[in-house]
Design a binder for these strands. Sequence first.
DNA 1: CTGAAAGCGCTAACAG
DNA 2: CTGTTAGCGCTTTCAG
Lengths: 355, 355
Amino acid sequence: MRASTGDREQDQDPPASPPRPAGRRGPRPAGAATIGRVAEAAGVSRATVSRVMNGSPTVHPELAARVRAAAAALDYEPSVAARSLALGRTGTISLVVPDLANPLFQGVLRGLSQAAAKAGRQLLVAESNEDPEEETILALEARRNSDGLVLASPRAPGERLRALSDRLAPFVLVYREVAGLGAPSLSIDNAAGVGDLVAHLTGLGHRRLAYLAGPAGSAAGAERLAALRAAPGIELTELACGSMFDDGHAAARAVVDCGASAVVGFNDMVASGVLTGLHELGVRVPGEVSVTGFDDIPFARYTTPPLTTVSIPKNELGEQAWARLWALMNGEPAGYNVRFQPRLLVRDSTGPALA
Amino acid sequence: MRASTGDREQDQDPPASPPRPAGRRGPRPAGAATIGRVAEAAGVSRATVSRVMNGSPTVHPELAARVRAAAAALDYEPSVAARSLALGRTGTISLVVPDLANPLFQGVLRGLSQAAAKAGRQLLVAESNEDPEEETILALEARRNSDGLVLASPRAPGERLRALSDRLAPFVLVYREVAGLGAPSLSIDNAAGVGDLVAHLTGLGHRRLAYLAGPAGSAAGAERLAALRAAPGIELTELACGSMFDDGHAAARAVVDCGASAVVGFNDMVASGVLTGLHELGVRVPGEVSVTGFDDIPFARYTTPPLTTVSIPKNELGEQAWARLWALMNGEPAGYNVRFQPRLLVRDSTGPALA
DNA sequence: CTGAAAGCGCTAACAG
DNA sequence: CTGTTAGCGCTTTCAG
């Protein structure tokens, strides 16, 4: 990367829009239409308007038509707040994640967003910036503004989650399982994923593996490491590493030095980081060393060479979370926890070990 | 990409959580604490509790303490719905985008999310799946559940936006500018970006450029193409192309055939697609042909070679959108539109043209 | 500095 | 099938 140019921004166009009075009282833009006005205009009671607006079939067609006409004429839009108060629900659910830039959470965001939309529910989103304490606060807050919560909190102490459980309910936990929690959880079977990876690698003749360990706090990282340590028939070198591209990039040297024939990255970012690092060092992948990742982020298909990795159902986690939450919100039992089995995706970054 | 293994999912753990009654009335979990109960417990009026909860300084410290104690003892949490109804605002703003998987919108999502959080506001998110019609519906709906809206609607007809303007206000438009709209807009100066790119390329001696055109509907694409056509001193070949990696990948052949010494991608995805395609064809980048992208998505730093591209302030768009919206919500004038000037990022995918 | 009372806009029994 | 009547839980004048 060499240079860069360019200004920041630049104004233009004349201003507009008259300043409207700041602190009004009452929700509506001014003398906006209420159910009462519509009732009056249509010459019926508010109850009838309410029924029409909610599609009750027990209203005489003619009246219904009159009401609809009046509503349209007045540009009537029901007040969500009033509705929530009367109904006791908001029509909204919320999602709290550590980091919106992380593809893992983007996946559940998308899945959840679409599932919720399909059911006509709105979605509130909050991000904790990886702060577990903040996470629980946000969760509480988000929960109060909605009818249910999907929580991704990889690092908050289980104890705290259990303590908050009642106030968060109904909610479902994703990417994690906490013992004794009264909420369903959807998680990933990291051990199985690692198992598949190791089987693939040993099948190709690899014996000496290097592991690019992720950040210390990560529960997923711990599971993956444990599984690796427990894997039979391999000789493991653990290399400290973060979770980002640059961490993997920086580890390339150490990888070649340790003499491993295959390197297992904590996730796809560090894996593509080593990929680049190895390329720079003139080490051929998969010719001289094989590289694997974890997660199958969108980017993983497009590295050179395309990354062999373990795919986890990110979107599906979101969809399933919706299904669970929906059940919970309807008073159905939480049901069994589920642990998704990852899927090995063999691409071109792995090959036979040198004889 | 060769094989794949693995199951889908797998149950475990016994169930739990007693089914609670489905259709109750009233918001709270059951006989939850209301302001009234707290008042009673503290031996004061509801008005006083309200004052305390809202930090009014005009309450006797002792009373305040009693109230707080009672509230804590009862696990009191104010009803957001009731509050919204009485106050006339929800404490929430909303964001509507075509596609949550798009890095452009993820950027404004993050920027907006953080800015709103800093101000103690919640964020509602909705995604239209690229359907302009749906977009406006969602926008209306989202707006009703919040105090303000940030809308990214690259394809909805300007006419429709103008028509809806009143009902959407206060709102701000991002990545786009619509004439005669009563709302501020934050957009990108695509022509300037293209200008920088062309200057860079011609500076390196390139004369024959190929342009990988984006999808037809895109306003940004149109601006970029127009700027390219207007650029002096170059010979331009326009190649049909989409906006995805695979589109760029597929275009590699055509690029070499047309004899251009530099190829300008509609965005970073197609640019990295050609990068890969050219690599496969044995064409050296930037040795034989130079490649540029647009947007500076996170991935762009990590392609081989790293992509020369035009960076646009995605997060900042979100932050600024918040600032504008906040002003609007306080009855301040909409102010001038702003058009962000992109910044050329020269990395390693561009080099001198062959003599 | 505190309490009483009147809503915010909508829904849901319950009569008719 | 329609209207009347109570609220949902909180805020906010307005008196005291």
